[in-house]
Design a binder for these strands. Sequence first.
DNA 1: CATTCATATGAATAATTATTCAATTGATGT
DNA 2: ACATCAATTGAATAATTATTCATATGAATG
Lengths: 124, 124
Amino acid sequence: MKHGLSETCHLFFSTLSNPTRLAILELLRDGPKNVTEISESLNQEQSMISHNLKPLERCRFIFSERRKKKRFYALNKETMESLFKTFTYHTQKYCPTKGKCLTVRGLQKQKKKAASGPLYVNRY
Amino acid sequence: MKHGLSETCHLFFSTLSNPTRLAILELLRDGPKNVTEISESLNQEQSMISHNLKPLERCRFIFSERRKKKRFYALNKETMESLFKTFTYHTQKYCPTKGKCLTVRGLQKQKKKAASGPLYVNRY
DNA sequence: CATTCATATGAATAATTATTCAATTGATGT
DNA sequence: ACATCAATTGAATAATTATTCATATGAATG
């Protein structure tokens, strides 16, 4: 399926939907690191890190710069902190059970408890 | 690989990294719709829509409510608009070429053009 | 309570995406 | 130009995720 907006949007989010890449992003919050450092910190093959850095840079979630033999990668803080902020807020509100999202069944129970307010008013 | 934060984070973003689900979310910006309406609007099988609605609801990107025989789905506007805002801002800044992200090669050219400022200062 | 409309589910298959391993490229210092 | 360190690439395989189709459930109404 091809949907106008969805295409770029899909690239954006699919780049974020991978544990390795998320771990890299999380790690880079501490500051720029080169490939070997990332690879060692995350205990992953260096080539795998390289493979995953590429889409991150392509989407500009990270920036890179060569310093002598090493290439350092740095977080795009503005975008990433904004995303993490939204994520954290959302999670705390809707996934209160230790970061695990509720099951749909769980949702429905909770919905009943919450009594019936007006329709489609997202109760934040 | 299992990384603390990354786990929930991965569920969050992977739920968003699918063209069908993004199309659903986009559609629901116009207001609540039932499954058949969504299915018809997007020209997709009803069962596929159902399958995709589930993870969206599980992550609480949408809410649902039964109305007689129909079940209506509504966007979690707070979270989604916040994400779309970040996405749009980021895209306009970094993916100026009609929504297509730049290639890494493209990035490097642009980097050279931009002259060499101080390291790791994300130039917004 | 049988029928119809609306949605959900499960399981098989198809499609996409990740990971690994081997080889290559690139930069630097001698 | 060679040796070394650092990172990237490509292609094969593995793993994950999406889609389809057939069937089941669920709610409302005559």
